[in-house]
Amino acid sequence: MFMPYRDRLYKATFIERPNRFIIRARKEDGETVTAHLPDPGRLIELLIPGREIWLRYVDNPKRKTQWSAVLCESEDARVYVSLDTMFPNRLITQALKEKRIESLKKYNYIRAEYPFAGARWDFLLENKGRSLLLEVKSVTLAENGIAYFPDAVTARGRKHVEALTTIQNEGNCDTAVLFVVQRGDVTSVRPATHIDPAFASALQKAADAGVAMLAVTTDVRLEGVELGQELPVQLNIQKGPIK
């Protein structure tokens, strides 16, 4: 399943990142522009001065910046990595409606942004009257063919997982976490214990409680993104990437 980008992409060279949501880059015509960065993660292995990055122009006078970062080269320049944390939800919406994810094929898509138990969940699915709450996590960090989440400490992400654990234990509906790896050069997903041990611990407890752990890869191209295969989520692994 392929989802094309809605806008034309412009090639640029990354210069700097003044804050979590802003970057500066030099376009091919020599113009230096300020662009919104949709991914607030650390991205220190990706956003390196001189690395190629692709932007889209946003014609909206209400915005502080008229440019947004879309993707960049991977560390070894072998693949592209998406920098848009909102894109996975658009991709997964279509994938769920078309039943493109094997592990979730038996579920029918009901709605997105479902409010339940004091939180808003990415998707509500249903199978034979049984509901499933699905939370999507965007993954960009990878090393030696393994994707890691998160790439920075995430109290919000931990609370999401803890809430899913509580809901799963109550038994009123099923729950799942879906890691969407926004690059195509990995074969598995692991919690980044070396970055956020509290999140990794919460994820393990969630899995032990019955929260389903799912992952898919993507093939990021200059024209759009192709949904890839499902990947295993490896828990109970304490070590981080080998340096």
Rank of each mutant, 00 (worst) to 15 (best):
G30N: 02
T32C: 04
T32R: 10
T32S: 02
V33Q: 05
V33F: 10
V33L: 06
L37C: 09
P38M: 01
P40I: 11
R42A: 10
L43E: 11
E45G: 14
E45M: 06
L46S: 06
L46V: 08
L47W: 12
G50A: 02
R51D: 06
E52S: 14
W54A: 09
W54H: 09
W54K: 05
L55F: 06
R56M: 15
Y57S: 08
V58A: 04
V58C: 08
N60I: 00
P61K: 01
P61T: 00
K62M: 09
R63Y: 05
T65N: 01
W67E: 05
S68G: 00
L71R: 10
L71C: 15
L71S: 12
C72D: 08
C72A: 12
E73Y: 05
E75P: 04
V79M: 03
Y80D: 08
S82M: 13
L83N: 07
L83W: 10
L83H: 07
T85M: 13
M86Y: 14
P88L: 05
P88G: 05
N89G: 00
I92N: 05
T93A: 04
T93Q: 05
Q94C: 04
A95D: 14
L96N: 08
K97R: 15
K97G: 03
K97Q: 15
I101Y: 06
E102P: 03
E102K: 13
L104W: 09
K105V: 11
K105Y: 08
K106A: 12
Y107W: 07
I110D: 01
I110N: 00
E113N: 15
F116T: 01
A117C: 05
A119Y: 15
R120F: 02
W121P: 01
W121A: 05
W121K: 12
D122M: 01
F123I: 08
K128L: 09
G129V: 06
L133T: 06
L134R: 03
